[in-house]
Amino acid sequence: MKMFLETLKMCKAEIVKVVKEAEGIKSLLLETSIEKPIPGQFVMVWVPGFEEIPISPSMYERNVLRLTVATVGETTRKIHSLKPGERLFIRGPYGRGFNLDEKGNFLLIAGGYGAAPIIYALHELRKKGKNVAYIIGARSKDKLLFVSEARKFNAEVYIATDDGSLGFKGSAVEVAEKLIAKYDNVLACGPERMLYKIMLKCLELGVKCQISIERYIKCGIGICGSCVLDPKGLRVCSDGPVFYAEELANTEFGKYYTYPPGIKKPIE
């Protein structure tokens, strides 16, 4: 473990490869000297002249970090325009990741680009010899992430698309609800509405459930107060971003989203 102050240091990261993963989603492979992240942890990625944003890596292998990025704003659009040889700046890793040492088998549930930390967790779980299934949901088949990669790691794969263009026609939650009872652990990341339903189901069935959630992370180190979950005062950037279902219960999670300067927005 590096000293915490060291994780604040901005590290240059050279892009070695860019891969188109799905419609509107690219992966960047970066050579960097940051410490190996635990799946579910995040790094702060700075594009000089643009913003610094939190991204949860989708893979790490021998100094190569993979960031899988959807275009959601100016900074991510800029990241999509970068080519091998160009640089990004990274600090971290930060926060609490998934606990992969829990006993038993794992059901991994991903919605949209929430698949990034999930596929990284899948790699590491398979390396530990754990039994893993992967549910991936997306709007349509051209937006599905890491289907062949999950198969390559010998995980059982379930697909759900809203338009039915591949796999089950419907949401990942509908697929998950039938499977959760067969597993000891659930790991999930994706749209909050989906995660909330998974949280409730796991609490009902008593299945251990770890959820990676999203809030407006600005400093990444627990000081600025941008990502706080009311009323428990949990800081997503440093107490999370991965939480057990019990920790998220009776918080704003699934109901509303507080972002600076304290505005509450309902979760659609």
Binding site: L5, M10, M44, E51, R91, K218, C219, I221, C224
Partner: peptide, 10 residues
């Protein structure tokens, strides 16, 4: 709202 990121530096 506060400043755009980065808001902390080492």
């Amino acid at each position: 709202v506060g400043y755009n990121t980065p808001i902390v530096a080492y």
